[in-house]
Simulated assay, not measured.
Amino acid sequence: MIKPTCSASSAPDFLTVDEAAALLRVNRKTLYESIRLGQVPGVVHIGRSIRLRRDALLACVPGNGGPALGENR
């Protein structure tokens, strides 16, 4: 399990799926499914790799009335 050890000022702008899952405290499979369903903001596809914009993930406040990660509405 990856534990975020960077301070906010030194954290990378783009995260791997594993890093984003650790930041959001969700299972990586749940995050992959949510990405596939278009429920995650800031997704960047680079070839076969996926990166997520850290600021877009943090701006998406949980409890904002939208579906939970992996939940269909």
Rank of each mutant, 00 (worst) to 15 (best):
L58T: 10
N64R: 09
E33C: 08
R51Q: 13
R73Y: 11
I50K: 06
E19D: 02
I35H: 05
R53N: 05
V40R: 06
V17L: 11
N27Y: 08
R25Y: 01
A20D: 04
S7V: 10
L52Q: 03
L69T: 00
L52A: 02
P41H: 07
R54D: 05
E33I: 07
P62V: 06
V40N: 02
N64Q: 07
V40P: 01
R73E: 11
V17F: 04
L15V: 07
R73A: 13
I2K: 14
D18E: 15
K3T: 14
L57W: 05
V44Y: 10
C6N: 14
V17D: 03
R53T: 08
G38L: 04
G63T: 06
G63R: 05
P67G: 09
Q39S: 10
L37H: 14
N27D: 15
P41T: 04
N64E: 08
C6K: 15
V17A: 09
V40F: 01
N72T: 10
K29R: 15
M1H: 07
D13A: 15
C6Q: 14
S7T: 14
N64H: 09
P4W: 09
P62Y: 03
G65F: 01
M1A: 10
E33R: 15
I35N: 06
M1N: 05
L37K: 15
R54Q: 02
C60D: 15
S7I: 11
R51L: 13
K3Q: 12
A68R: 15
R36D: 08
C60G: 00
G63Y: 07
F14W: 09
S7P: 00
L23W: 03
T16I: 03
D55A: 12
P62N: 02
G47L: 03
P41M: 05
A21T: 05
F14M: 09
A59W: 04
S9P: 00
S9D: 14
R54V: 06
C60Q: 14
P12E: 04
A11Y: 02
N27F: 07
L31F: 07
L58W: 06
I50V: 15
A20P: 03
N64L: 07
R51H: 09
V44L: 13
G63K: 06
T5L: 11
V44K: 13
T5P: 00
I50R: 10
R54M: 02
G70A: 08
Y32H: 13
P62L: 00
V44M: 12
L23K: 04
V40L: 03
A68M: 14
R54G: 02
L15K: 05
T5H: 09
S49G: 04
A21L: 03
R25K: 13
A22W: 00
N64M: 08
L69P: 05
H45G: 00
V44H: 13
A22V: 03
K29I: 12
Y32L: 14
V43E: 01
S34I: 03
P12W: 03
D13F: 11
T5G: 05
A56W: 02
L57G: 00
N27R: 13
T30D: 06
